[in-house]
Simulated scan of single mutants.
Amino acid sequence: MKSTELMPGTCGKTTEDKLAWIYLVNLVFYFIPMFLTEMPLWEIGVSLLILPPFIYCYFWAHRSSKVKAVYPILAIIALGALITPINAGSLALFTFAGFFIGFYYSLRTAFFGLLALLTLLTTLSLLLGINHYFFVLYGGFLVLGVGLFGVAERKRVEAKCRQQQSEAEISQLATMLERERIGRDLHDIMGHNLSSISLKAELAEKLLAKDELEQARIQLRELNEIARDSLSQIRQTVSDYKHKGLSASVMQLCQTLRDKGLSVSLEGDLPILPSTLESQLILSITELCNNVIRHSQASHCVITFERLTDEINISVTDNGTPQSVTEGNGLSGIRERLSEFQGKLDYSLEKHCRFTITLPVPEEQALEPRAQKLVSGVQN
């Protein structure tokens, strides 16, 4: 009857009003007596007039906290009791009250609340002479069943809320650790360099004051080199922070190609690479995929990862038919990135347009293919 992300007590909630409307379909039982019995028009009218305040109370209960839920629950019970003399379909209203009782309160409190609700049904049945089997036994079974469903829903939501809280705590801890890592990296990178810059600037100032211009030039030249080196190190560090990892980046590139109308195949196993090399490889593959989109006029693209004994090959192949390749800043930039890691870029225009990146296996670690194959076959 209700699937709100509500956590009774201290945990917050997210109201799902659209889904809450769906559970009002249970009101169909409220209309059954109108069709099975010959009710006067005024009774039908009064029965229909009860529905707007009930729906208001339903959403009131749906959005309430545990402390304030008692008010809409009592209002729903009161509406059910008032309409019972006219329409025995009021049992549908009592079942909603039973659900909220089970959902909001502890098992002990819910037990006594549902017991009180069953006592009310029995009292109404006796006072109004309603069929005991229908109103007390059948109605009591519905109220208890839906109330227990409310208890189960509460348990589920509490468990989900605890899981979300745990995930939030883990995420917060990971963020704190990442901040510490960034702070430590920047300190390691810049601490010594900034000290050197300060000392050399101070020394150059003193040399200029003594008119020792040549020595001052040497200090300023070294200061400039330190500043450039620091800037390069910071850029490299930021680049390492920004990339999402080879797997996530390749999947995003594939989606970009599909969005442009190409079908895509991924073949082979993703290698495990050092973060600096992985960053440059991601930038290189991105440039090649952008070239496919801009220049190839292809309908299909294959990205292949292949590890040999002493090298790793990554190729981007499309079914375009270019007659020649003009190397611009993009391809030149790829060659410059790869040269730092003794890598190279080759291309072939035979049958299809294929660009291949070749990287040596890093010496500091023996690379093994990932256990799970990335993708096999065509993905449209």
Rank of each mutant, 00 (worst) to 15 (best):
62 H>A: 00
63 R>L: 04
64 S>T: 03
68 K>T: 04
70 V>I: 12
70 V>N: 07
70 V>A: 05
72 P>V: 12
72 P>G: 08
73 I>R: 00
80 G>E: 04
83 I>R: 03
85 P>F: 07
89 G>Y: 08
89 G>A: 10
90 S>V: 05
92 A>R: 01
93 L>T: 08
94 F>R: 11
94 F>W: 13
95 T>H: 01
99 F>C: 00
100 F>H: 03
100 F>R: 09
103 F>W: 12
104 Y>T: 07
106 S>D: 13
107 L>Q: 15
109 T>W: 11
110 A>M: 13
110 A>L: 11
111 F>H: 12
117 L>D: 01
120 L>F: 15
120 L>P: 13
121 L>V: 08
121 L>W: 02
122 T>L: 13
122 T>M: 12
122 T>G: 07
123 T>L: 15
124 L>C: 09
124 L>M: 12
128 L>V: 02
128 L>Q: 03
130 I>Y: 06
131 N>W: 12
134 F>G: 03
137 L>K: 07
140 G>C: 08
140 G>R: 06
141 F>E: 01
142 L>H: 04
143 V>P: 05
144 L>P: 02
144 L>K: 09
147 G>T: 00
147 G>S: 06
147 G>K: 09
147 G>E: 05
148 L>G: 10
148 L>T: 03
150 G>V: 02
151 V>W: 04
152 A>E: 07
154 R>W: 02
156 R>H: 09
157 V>M: 08
158 E>A: 14
159 A>E: 04
160 K>F: 01
161 C>R: 02
164 Q>A: 15
165 Q>H: 08
166 S>G: 01
168 A>R: 14
168 A>P: 01
171 S>N: 13
173 L>D: 09
174 A>G: 01
175 T>V: 10
175 T>L: 15
176 M>L: 15
177 L>P: 03
181 R>V: 05
183 G>Y: 13
183 G>Q: 15
186 L>G: 00
189 I>D: 10
189 I>C: 10
190 M>T: 11
192 H>Y: 09
192 H>G: 09
193 N>G: 02
